[in-house]
Amino acid sequence: MNAPMPEPLVEVSDLCREFDVSKPWLNRLIEREPKQFLRAVDNVHFNINKGETLALVGESGSGKSTIAKMLVGLLEPSQGTILFGGQRMRTDTSAEMQVLRKRFQMIFQSPYASLNPRWRVGEVIAEPMTVLAIVKDRREIQKRVDELLVLVGLSAADARKFPHEFSGGQRQRIAIARALSANPEFIVCDEPTSALDVSVQAQILNLMRDLQDELGLTYLFISHDLSVVRHMANRIGVLYLGALVEIADSKTLFSNPVHPYTKMLLDAVPDLAMTGRERKRVEGEIPNPINPPTGCTFHPRCPFANERCKREVPLLKAYGTGVASCHAVEEGRID
């Protein structure tokens, strides 16, 4: 194997994000409660290489959407850095950030809320081009909008319509056309198909893969659905309560999961092929993220937890081609 050295496009290190979830000042004063913080993202590291799809999977409260927002400069990290093509990501609109903004885009979860209902489809798609001053000539913009609509499987005549005239799947195509209009290298896809029906989901996933091949895009794919993630990603990161518990190649993660939480997630997926795959019973629920468990946050649900797990936060260690953070794996208590 002589694969070229992967070239990182996005480098995320020590990323943390806290939210102030305190009650209003007066209530705190009366009830004598301190300020409360929710640590949505806790010390997350990863790289995304050029041309690959990295998926982040997790359940509610895992911090996956918060990471997505920080990665595209919609949210300031509380700690840590995000480098995009070697440049530091910020939330302001300075000239250098505006140059950087041409290079990344995002596709959102809801095809209904992500398009302004009062704008014509043509205006929606043209917005990134005009705001980022990529194409200035009006006729040129028109031409590019038409091309993009055809590229995502709609027709040029659709530019004059309003979003409500389209179905959910078609709207998601429009959102993809908008994301492509500024010619980005990197697209963050935040649950792009979770609001769609399966047959439409298949259309959108196929389209996204075709576009990746055609345009050489890099994706960060965020989802709660393991089978979708397996279909789309080269590498997968598993998040639990804001922390990254495992990253591995897609194939390795599914054939040989290391972290007990990853194993549990895999066991929770219904067996559609009815192969009689052996599965363990899933136990427990996700704890309240405002008051997470001590040590390894997964320990109350983990069949392998011991005293050390309750006390000490595990660090990411390399196992094979991937990394995982688990005391039990490190100590060899799990094979």
Partner: peptide
């Protein structure tokens, strides 16, 4: 908080533009 406003922020639209062009009509 809707995603179309996030999409406009993402490309660096200034608050004034977002308020007048995106939010006000709605």
């Amino acid at each position: 908080n809707k995603e179309y406003v996030q999409a406009a922020k993402l490309i660096g639209r200034k608050p004034m533009g977002i308020m007048v062009k995106h939010i006000l009509p709605n």
